[in-house]
């Protein structure tokens, strides 16, 4: 159930230079949210008309946790918020991940800011799941995945934290067995993951990102090319409403 209201902020901290985590006291969102859903967070300065879509990293009893990167005039306003300040929110939005069936083994692959949206998923997967995380340099949040008992593999461009290379190169090196693949990260990474999973015939769910305006499916701003099985041509679907999670096989990656 989508709601629009002001939530109080708790425990905001900088995880890495420019990457922040905050807790939002948002019972209405926390009660109904599913892993893979997101919220719209409105910058306090009204000159920024549009909300910023931010994935839910964790869903607790009465609150949710978000992790965001400061990238511009909108997001740079959020780190200035202190405990008990409020921020305008709308959510939970979008369709989340579909959890695996009992007995299935999952592989979770995240890259950079695509890692936080996978945390709650990882917690809620009842069976076995192996986690692969890719970073530009120093890892963050890898401990959160280990915290609930997952086996975590880390790759980075610099070799910081373990494997040097892309997260998919690490996946290919370890060659984990999987019935299902879940991925979130930069578009090229998602494409590579979808192609890798496709070659092995493993169903893959990818969480996509795109510039948004309304966040609820009315404006058609955040489009993604999707070709459904059996359909002759692709169509633009809405990341905010029809996604953000799509079948990696149905995304038209090139063009």
């Amino acid at each position: 159930m989508n709601t629009y209201y002001k939530a109080a902020i708790r425990n905001q901290k900088e995880l890495m230079p420019g990457i922040w985590k905050m807790e939002l006291e948002a019972p209405e969102i926390a009660h109904s949210a599913r892993p893979g859903q997101f919220i719209q967070m409105y910058p306090p300065d009204e000159r920024n008309l549009l909300a910023r879509p931010i994935s839910l990293a964790a869903i607790h009893g009465e609150s949710v946790e978000v992790v965001y990167r400061v990238v511009g005039k909108g997001t740079e306003q959020f780190p200035r918020l202190r405990d008990n300040d409020t921020v305008q929110l709308m959510g939970p939005l979008g369709d989340g991940f579909t959890l695996p069936e009992a007995g299935e083994r999952s592989v979770i692959i995240g890259g950079g800011l695509g890692i936080p949206p996978l945390l709650e998923l990882s917690k809620r997967i009842p069976g076995e799941a192996e986690v692969f995380l890719g970073y530009a340099d120093a890892p963050f949040m890898d401990g959160d995945f280990r915290g609930h008992g997952r086996k975590v593999h880390v790759a980075s461009q610099t070799g910081n934290g373990g494997f040097r290379g892309t997260v998919l190169e690490l996946v290919e090196t370890i060659a984990p067995f999987a019935d299902r693949v879940y991925a979130c990260g930069p578009r090229q990474m998602l494409q590579a993951v979808a192609e890798w999973a496709g070659r092995q015939g493993i169903p893959v769910q990818v969480s996509m990102e795109e510039r948004m305006a309304c966040g609820i499916g009315a404006c058609l701003g955040c489009a993604v090319k999707i070709q459904k099985p059996g359909e002759k041509d692709w169509q633009y679907l809405r990341v905010c409403r029809d996604g953000p999670v799509f079948s990696g096989r149905e995304v038209v990656w090139n063009g």
Partner: peptide
């Protein structure tokens, strides 16, 4: 109508740009 390629949205000071292409 299929609509225009992405990105279709840009924020500006006190406003926004859209190019949805009447999808």
């Amino acid at each position: 109508w299929k609509g225009n390629p992405i990105p279709r949205i840009a924020e500006t000071q006190s406003g926004m740009l859209n190019s949805i292409g009447l999808q």
